[in-house]
């Protein structure tokens, strides 16, 4: 029983930790792209990687102040969005999907390559760039704090606080945009581009704006992740994270303001709970060693999440917040 409570507490920390923020921001960006505008961005992690490395390279390689690093990170995300969008947004939706997935993988391989080592640190990545940010915390970052039975370092708490503020900020931004005429145009583009063109809207511009906005939000996710872990390593930015963020978005409900946030929190909670819970059950002998060893747990929990998502799509395709009427309309 105490193991179960432990598992809950550990998972509860995951619920609020910087990884949940990371996925929440990725998913908010994807929500702008996919949920509202209908852009298939399968390389959101590339924006996050530019976010993380934007700070890391600026601070630890170029010796720039932290806040300049943030600006560099935002700027490089904007440039990436423009580069991805310029050739593909005039074409059908699938072209953006192909290009983003290729760029996400290509950029990661480039960043970890030997020739890029002088700048990106290669496979070992960069570290020691978040000191000036952690130092801003109004409390002692060396001490550990106990909150509801979970233990946080002062630094973790600070990153989580700022991270959640960012999540709230971007959620409000998306909420405001999507109830404005701008959001109406963007949603109409998701439904049918040509109809929107025929009504005098510059579809290309709107798609580009949405791509840049979602990409910058994703870059903030990468920044939170890099600052939270204290290091930026190219292989942390596997493209599987993009698809986990999609999972979070579907779980919460696409094209819903709170969908990606709650989805990301729940996804992380479930992953962590399954992990600690299963390990506890195995060590207690409830699950026999012959059936499942604790080394399998890391994989099994993703299987469980997968099964959960499948059940979700069967019984509640709209996700937690979605409107079933609306989702069923799209059975094209």
């Amino acid at each position: 029983m105490s193991d179960l409570i432990d598992a809950f507490q550990v998972a509860g920390k995951a619920f609020f930790g910087f990884q949940a923020i990371f996925f929440a921001l990725l998913a908010i960006g994807i929500n702008v792209h996919f949920g509202y505008t209908g852009l298939l961005n399968f390389g959101q992690i590339a924006f996050a990687m530019l976010g993380g490395f934007g700070i890391a390279i600026s601070v630890s390689q170029w010796g720039l102040p932290f806040w300049v690093g943030v600006l560099v990170a935002i700027g490089s995300a904007v440039v990436l969005a423009l580069l991805l969008g310029l050739p593909t947004l005039r074409l059908r939706a699938d072209y953006l999907a192909i290009v983003t997935i290729a760029v996400a993988e290509g950029l990661r391989l480039l960043f970890r390559s030997v020739s890029a080592t002088p700048v990106t640190g290669g496979t070992r990545g960069l570290s020691a760039f978040n000191g000036s940010f952690i130092a801003l915390a109004p409390w002692d970052t060396q001490k550990r704090y106990n909150i509801l039975g979970t233990s946080w370092s002062g630094g973790e708490l600070w990153v989580a606080l700022i991270g959640w503020l960012l999540v709230i900020l971007f959620t409000l931004l998306v909420w405001q945009l999507m109830r404005s005429p701008w959001g109406r145009v963007v949603k109409a583009i998701r439904e049918d581009e040509d109809a929107v063109r025929a009504l005098g809207k510059n579809v290309y511009n709107y798609k580009m704006q949405a791509l840049v906005l979602g990409g910058v939000i994703g870059a903030f996710g990468g920044m939170v992740y890099a600052v939270g872990t204290g290091s930026a390593i190219p292989d942390q930015y596997q493209n599987a994270n993009t698809f986990l963020a999609y999972g979070a978005l579907i779980l919460g409900g696409a094209a819903r303001v709170l969908g990606p946030v709650i989805g990301a929190m729940l996804l992380l909670f479930i992953l962590q709970f399954a992990d600690t819970g299963l390990r506890a059950l195995i060590s207690n002998g409830v699950i026999p060693d012959t059936l499942l060893s604790s080394t399998d747990v890391a994989q099994i929990r993703f299987v469980l999440v997968g099964i959960g998502l499948m059940l979700l799509l069967v019984f509640r395709p709209q996700g937690i917040f979605g409107d079933r009427r609306e989702v069923m309309l799209d059975a094209r």
Binding site: V185, A188, R190, E191, D192, A195, E326, L329
Partner: peptide, 14 residues
Amino acid sequence: KALSRLTVLQNMLL
């Protein structure tokens, strides 16, 4: 080309 997942009024306002 009705914009399915927009309401009738939103279609009009567009």
